[in-house]
Design a protein around this nucleic acid. Sequence first.
DNA 1: CGAATTTCCTAAACCAGTTCATTTTTATTT
DNA 2: AAATAAAAATGAACTGGTTTAGGAAATTCG
Lengths: 195, 195
Amino acid sequence: MKDLLPVIDYVSRYVDLTDDEKKHLATFLKITKVKKRQFIVQPGFVCKHKSYVVKGAFRGYLVDNEGKEHTLSFAIEDWWISDYSSLIYQEPATLFVEALEDSVLIQIEYEDEQKFLREIPKLEKFERIITQRSLAFQQKRLLSNFTKTAEERYDEFISKYAEIAKRVPQYALASYLGFSTEYLSKIRNRKTSKS
Amino acid sequence: MKDLLPVIDYVSRYVDLTDDEKKHLATFLKITKVKKRQFIVQPGFVCKHKSYVVKGAFRGYLVDNEGKEHTLSFAIEDWWISDYSSLIYQEPATLFVEALEDSVLIQIEYEDEQKFLREIPKLEKFERIITQRSLAFQQKRLLSNFTKTAEERYDEFISKYAEIAKRVPQYALASYLGFSTEYLSKIRNRKTSKS
DNA sequence: CGAATTTCCTAAACCAGTTCATTTTTATTT
DNA sequence: AAATAAAAATGAACTGGTTTAGGAAATTCG
């Protein structure tokens, strides 16, 4: 139970749970350890879990027809990650979700989640709120892609998510921001020569 | 009540409501008529409603620093529209939401929604599900922007949303797909000269 | 440790999509 | 039906970001 506290606490930020409810919720959680470069989601397989990062770093990405990678999301400590589409529709994933470091996760299985949403209706509210926030976040990202240049998006990311930028490889960052690694080098070069 | 049925039916697709609950929900809904070119959301003002389109067409867009427009969403009959960020955080909107035709809406006020979510907890589930679906949709759109060329995105949109493509102005469609109107003309030209 | 693999950087040619300036077509209003 | 405004088209010059191809660092792992 003690190891599962991070998720219990996370949920408690959004809804008040009784001790019984916390214990009940805990029975649905399980700890998973993964090594660097290991996949927790792969295209073709239905995504079975929603994962909370206790320790480590992850990256969710798609490989397109030309073999190019496009990063959809990162997750470090206290973030969640999965192939959202695959999870909610329980259809084969299109994304890879890969550990960028040796990591520790707390996972919730899809079927279990459906079960406890029925048993603890309060958690519906939790789900609704965090989904709404993800949606608002995604909307901002889409707009940022439309309205800003590559360099502006880079600057924005560095200032908002310095910690993530430090920990993930640069090709991953470039593919998250929507441009090539070569161009990222160019940007960085421009900056260091300026200052 | 009869005029409000479209929304009651919409909600009923996702959760089972008793007749009493339906009546209760109906008390929170109101019909609004708007003329073409009228705004239902404007930057600087807090977005107060979530709107369901009974009749007509809308477009949600942002105007960036250079004065360029970027369309985030369209809505025709049986779709919802609002400035989602502004609504859930109750902070000033960044988007315009404008009627593209004379239209009829059913609106839910923010405070009322908070109230009925408390009074009819079943509706939390409804909210969760539709928000999850919007999120999955947005994710696909982001990926499509990353992985596909302008022309591919155009083709995809035409085949998935023929009805919308027919009804909205082309500059709106171009700014939704993330390129200039001039380029959209070019694409269309390429197509007609081919066939 | 040392070899292999992964990651990062550089530079020149190139192209998808933009910008600018002007014209034609289509809606809207009186 | 004319007048005006809004939307769509066209073409030439341009640019932000890609591609290709190479070499230099940095990690990983036996």
